[in-house]
Design a protein around this nucleic acid. Structure first.
Lengths: 182, 182
DNA sequence: ACCTGAACACCGTTCAAGT
DNA sequence: ACCTGAACACCGTTCAAGT
């Protein structure tokens, strides 16, 4: 919604900052990345970051939104694939950000903004999955339960680096058992 | 294995430090607890802690071992309960330390000692669960898969504060589906 | 062997001052 | 409105010095 030159320049600078933050957070982790490092990569003074973000946690949420936005737009191409294929693809996508999964859970307890983002993110994924399951004839209750469990399993697989064949076996068993025992 | 007076006094002091660390880590979290705070509660100078532990991560591992030891000794009383009862009891026990679950995952990436502890902890729980499942006639392969999934679900339930009835429904469905589709 | 005071390099964040 | 230099309070950790 850039209205004038000043607005555009602000967005460009913000883009640079978030690109730097995203790269550093993904590569070396949130804790291991200092505000000074982000500032250096973005070509500004450290305290300048506080003009754009209230604090480090809000900068994290900004990078999360960028990543999710990019992920959702790529997900559009997978819309007609079967559910297990979608889930395994999702795991492959999230793999590179697996460090951020843990980071989010760590910050949820201390930062209200991250807590809110996290709740919304899970609700979104749950809804997505519930819709798919109900289309397969699973009851609303069972679909909700299965969506929650699948979310936990996805997070578990991401944060525990399971070998690919085992990962596939788990996803396929989960969906099969989920529909079968509905 | 205290052999003499000096050894005993060392153990007493270490006990005090670990009691203080455990309390603070559980109450206000690992990140939010400074070495200075632990030292103050234990009645020593901050740098004295480094005589007992190589760094903050090793102090964390020491507190984890204390908590697990206590937990296992209480688990002995539950040995003859059905598996779902045991799991729900375990969740109740871990509830108070749910913050530490996230902390461990966060430190796994950066500290080798925590990484090692985490791997051993999961192996122990997996073995415990696999033995139980095989006794129910589940194949070794299916038992392994189910143990992994259950571990993920337990961690998910702990770090996402699910309401009790939903929690029970999830645990019961998981075990039923796990044995049923074996 | 055990403990400490002082210091080190760093951290996230704030503030007053600039344009 | 946007950016900065300087400072603040704090952090985990180290080191030389004590007993």
């Amino acid at each position: 919604m850039a209205k004038n030159k000043r607005d555009i320049e602000r967005q460009v600078k913000q883009e640079e900052i978030e690109a730097a933050a995203t790269r550093l957070f993904v590569e070396r982790g949130y804790d291991a990345t200092s505000m000074a490092q982000v500032a250096e990569q973005a070509g500004v003074a450290p305290n300048t970051l506080y003009w754009y973000y209230k604090n480090k946690d809000e900068m994290l949420v900004a990078t999360l939104n960028r990543l999710v936005g990019k992920g959702l737009s790529e997900y559009a191409q997978m819309a007609d694939q079967p559910l297990d294929t979608q889930l395994l693809w999702l795991l492959g996508q999230f793999e590179q950000f697996s460090a951020l999964v843990t980071t989010v859970h760590a910050r949820v307890e201390h930062a209200a903004t991250v807590r809110e983002w996290h709740a919304n993110f899970h609700m979104m994924l749950d809804q997505l999955m519930i819709a798919r399951l109900q289309a397969q004839g699973v009851t609303a209750e069972q679909a909700g339960l299965l969506a929650t469990v699948t979310g936990f399993v996805v997070e578990g697989l991401l944060s525990h680096a399971t070998p690919q064949p085992q990962r596939e076996a788990i996803v396929q068993w989960l969906l099969r058992a989920g529909v079968q025992t509905a």
